[in-house]
Design a binder for these strands. Structure first.
Lengths: 216, 216
DNA sequence: GTCTATAGCAGGATAGAC
DNA sequence: GTCTATCCTGCTATAGAC
């Protein structure tokens, strides 16, 4: 995200900068004075382009967050379609890796989840957008994929199962802070690999399936 | 928490009120003007008793959050000690119910998790206090309880397993908002029972153990 | 101990020059 | 389209009367 180059146009620079700052410090702690200073443009530009701070915030979701979430989804689907056969294991693994080793840079993952986490605790219109445009459809698609292999459970149970898998993935991705505090381990690349394995295994067992042994 | 009665003393009223308001709207959105108005005391009282807004916030954690978390822990232990034999199932179930059907009123659960969720995304000194005083010891205790039944895995795996169980419990407790949006169901008592069953089952399977059938 | 009044600052928004 | 200057509101914190 260090692409706030001056050749990008004020509008884009504002979106880039605002996203980084909002993620880092939260909506309230960031002033439009901060944003315009970092974006190297004038204070009034925010009002000119986005009709105010709130408008800028929503446009960050419209133009960055939603497309980025779609990239995770596309990555997942490409993976699924490349498999000969979709089993519970391939689905869960593809999902975990789409988040943890997917199309997003580490920096983007960080930003994305910080903003999402903030929305969960301070819900605004942006959360509704994410739920409607990305989360709900994605959950539905994953549920449909798993349906054939989990015949014995109800639709409602299936939904809760899928949510649980997402919960684990999200928790281990965005909860790095307390997790690091409790485990005493930094999120190095190596540790992230370990977490991917852990989440995949735990989810698979959780779904009631046995995972085939697989060299890590 | 509607116990902000005038006979409680200004100090206690301020702690009660501040907790409710901070949980509902977040530290930044709540002014000491709001707090003192609701607590029916003077604006200057916050500075007099707590040396400022931040001091009040930290004292909410010291005097409400930490003791409350300890109550969950105590509830869990009482339950464990009443069992003839501690199995993985009894531990997981006791843990889930301590959070979801435990010693806290629904209102307290709400407040507690909102404040914790806010700390996770906006970490302050309060999070360190919670981790050191409550979370880390509790995780260690649960790990020790499970150790005998999960001999085959390393300490590190065990820790991740325990964190995963907590992750599910916390997600389904504090993540009610997006979950309701996705499932389209309100968190009624009946639905909460269902969630307890789901979390317990998913965790047990996740830990690699088979759950005995049990009438729901 | 409790209150009023106010200092002192920072923020969002906007009017209007260029 | 871009910028400066400014308005207005709201905040925390404190000084000092009672």
């Amino acid at each position: 995200m260090k692409t706030d180059r001056l050749d990008k146009g004020v509008r884009e620079r504002l979106l880039d900068t605002a996203e980084v700052l909002f993620a880092a410090d939260g909506y309230d702690h960031v002033s439009i004075r901060d944003i315009t200073r970092y974006a190297q443009c004038n204070l009034a530009a925010v009002n000119y382009y986005f009709k105010g701070k709130q408008g800028l915030y929503l446009d960050v979701f419209r133009h960055h967050m939603i497309p980025r979430a779609r990239r995770i989804r596309d990555f997942f689907w490409k993976r699924i379609k490349s498999e000969k056969k979709t089993t519970v294991e391939t689905v869960v693994r593809a999902l975990t890796e789409a988040y943890m080793h997917g199309p997003l840079s580490q920096e983007e993952v960080e930003i994305h989840h910080k903003l999402m986490a903030r929305e969960l605790t301070n819900p605004t219109k942006a959360l509704d957008m994410m739920v409607e445009d990305v989360i709900r459809p994605f959950v539905a698609e994953v549920s449909a994929l798993l349906r054939p292999d989990l015949k014995s459970i109800s639709d409602e149970e299936l939904l809760l199962d899928v949510i649980s898998v997402f919960a684990l993935i999200l928790y281990f991705t965005f909860g790095r802070l307390p997790i690091s505090k409790v485990t005493g381990r930094e999120y190095t690349d190596k540790y992230r690999d370990k977490l991917v394995e852990h989440v995949t295994r735990f989810s698979l067992y959780g779904l009631g399936c046995n995972i085939k042994d697989k060299e890590t």
